[in-house]
Simulated scan of single mutants.
Amino acid sequence: MTRIFRDRPAGMRQLLKAEAGTAGRFAVVGAAATGVHASTAVALLEAGALEAFPANIAGFVLAFCVSFSGHHFWSFGHMRNNGDGARRMRRFLVLALTGFLLNSIVLAAWLELTPWPDVLGILLSIAIIPGLTFLGARLWAFANHSKDTHD
């Protein structure tokens, strides 16, 4: 694999290196947001403040704030233009809600249709989302399209 990478033109190597850095930052922010989501939901549930579903929504809302801020300023900060924060937030919210819905659908299908352990369904539903979210964030939500004036 190193040889394949070395044989690429210098511009391609730089692009691949930059994209790997972006993906790495995306993973760090995503892990932090996942931790916020889980810890918030569990804390609210264990304290008796909320039942499971509302606690999960509260965790999702806080995690969205962490995730958007981290991606806007760090993961995709190099792609930021002045005045595009509101557009990025709207798009990332659509992406995050879509990911949350897809995660829920995959998990519900797993639980309903398979005899295998629930924990495998949870892991599968969690594993599917980050790659799709990264592509959507990189190519749409945080993309810098100078001619793109609408959502």
Rank of each mutant, 00 (worst) to 15 (best):
A108M: 12
L15Q: 14
M12P: 02
P115D: 11
E46S: 10
G136F: 12
L97E: 02
W116C: 03
D118Y: 12
S104K: 13
P115C: 07
L97Y: 03
V119I: 15
L93D: 00
F76W: 12
T114C: 03
F134N: 00
D7S: 04
L102Q: 02
H71N: 09
P9T: 12
V36T: 04
A47K: 10
L44Y: 04
A52L: 15
L124G: 02
E46V: 14
G77F: 07
A55W: 12
R87P: 00
N103D: 06
R6C: 11
V36H: 05
R91D: 01
G35F: 10
L111N: 06
S104L: 14
A49I: 13
G99S: 08
V61F: 13
L113F: 15
F64R: 09
F92D: 01
R80N: 01
A18N: 09
A33K: 14
E19S: 06
A43I: 11
T34G: 10
R8S: 14
L15N: 04
L50K: 11
K17W: 10
G59V: 02
G77N: 08
L50G: 08
T22F: 13
F53C: 03
S39E: 09
N56F: 15
A32Y: 11
G11W: 15
F68E: 03
A27W: 05
W116E: 05
V66M: 14
N144M: 04
F142K: 01
P117T: 06
N82C: 05
M79P: 00
G85T: 06
H145L: 07
I4D: 04
S67W: 09
F134P: 01
C65Q: 07
G48Y: 13
L95A: 08
P130A: 02
A43P: 11
F5R: 11
I122S: 02
A20T: 15
R13D: 02
A127Y: 05
E46P: 05
M79V: 01
W116P: 00
R91T: 02
A58F: 06
K17P: 02
G85S: 11
G59S: 02
A86K: 09
R8N: 12
A41L: 11
N81H: 10
G99P: 04
A141L: 07
R3F: 04
G99T: 02
S125I: 04
E51L: 15
A96S: 15
V36S: 03
A127I: 07
S75D: 07
N144S: 12
S125H: 07
I122P: 00
F68A: 06
L107M: 07
W110E: 11
K147F: 09
L44K: 05
I57T: 14
F92G: 01
H71K: 09
E19N: 11
R138P: 00
